[in-house]
């Protein structure tokens, strides 16, 4: 089976700083792929290229056989690409349910005219998406109790789950998670890992995730790409990466 996402010889520079140099990576369909590396290695830059925030100086990014780079950021979710952010990017002024509903934006069809009348199709799709969220998302992520609360004051771990819920609503083919375990204790990390694994096994979602915590990620993913200073220094199975001398150097800081 061809990879779902193929990143090929991608380079990106900010001014004189080379954030990414000839990065190549591929994400196999139906698997969990992890990008790891120390801070500043270029992990989030790679995500931002895939999301459409940055345009690389060279290289290609193919998703399911289509070239992603000419597409603006807002056109990419329609292909089935969802993501979360390292610093939770929820909308504080909206309730939990409304935040999650925003994840379905690209699939809903109401326009200003049908929305202001709120009859027929506009009302129906709104009811359908609410039912979908209530049945398949809220229970799964343990959010039912708080669906009508404003997200502003909720605890960090809960906000992380809401952001995951928002990304899952569109039933993405590729789910990109930027540091899903950041700031969590061991217990919460375990729980989040379970959610992620269930996304793959139950919904056939492909996951690409970033972390700098090696241990959590190595146990979860089947393929690992290690970045350091904007270059791929190793890629392969967790076992291969764990014993790779370059990776050990990068993490332990040996010369």
């Amino acid at each position: 089976m061809p990879p779902l996402l193929t990143i090929d010889r991608v380079s990106l520079a900010f001014g004189g700083v080379n954030a990414l140099t000839d990065v190549a990576a591929s994400v196999a369909d139906g698997d969990i792929t992890a990008i790891i590396g120390p801070n500043g290695a270029g992990k989030t830059s790679l995500f931002n290229i895939t999301s459409g925030f940055y345009k690389p100086a060279s290289g290609t990014v193919m998703f399911d056989g289509k070239d992603l780079l000419p597409l603006p950021a807002h056109a990419r979710p329609k292909l089935g690409i969802a993501r979360t952010f390292q610093n939770i990017a929820l909308f504080a002024g909206l309730s939990v349910l409304e935040n999650i509903k925003l994840g379905a934006h690209a699939q809903l069809k109401a326009n200003a005219g049908t929305a202001s009348l709120y009859l027929g199709p506009a009302a129906r799709e709104e009811r359908d998406v609410t039912a979908h969220i209530e049945n398949n998302i809220l229970g799964f992520l343990n959010l039912s109790e708080i669906r009508h609360r404003a997200v502003g004051g909720l605890p960090y771990g809960v906000q992380k789950r809401i952001e995951l819920a928002r990304a899952l609503v569109m039933q993405p083919r590729l789910l990109m998670l930027d540091e899903p375990f950041a700031g969590m204790n061991a217990n919460e990390r375990l729980q989040m890992a379970t959610y992620i694994r269930r996304c793959v096994t139950e919904s056939r979602t492909t996951v690409l995730l970033i972390d700098h915590n090696m241990e959590t990620v190595l146990g979860l993913s089947s393929h690992v790409v290690v970045l350091n200073f904007g270059k791929v220094i190793a890629a392969g199975t967790p076992d291969h990466v764990r014993t790779h001398s370059g990776v050990i150097d990068a993490y332990l800081g040996a010369a």
Partner: peptide, 30 residues
Amino acid sequence: ASRNLFRTRIGRAFIAVRERDYAAQVLGID
């Protein structure tokens, strides 16, 4: 009509753009 607008994707998109335009984009909001 204005109240209805904010029960749907159109109104939610306004608020999303106001609060975080980059996050709005990855949700497919133009």
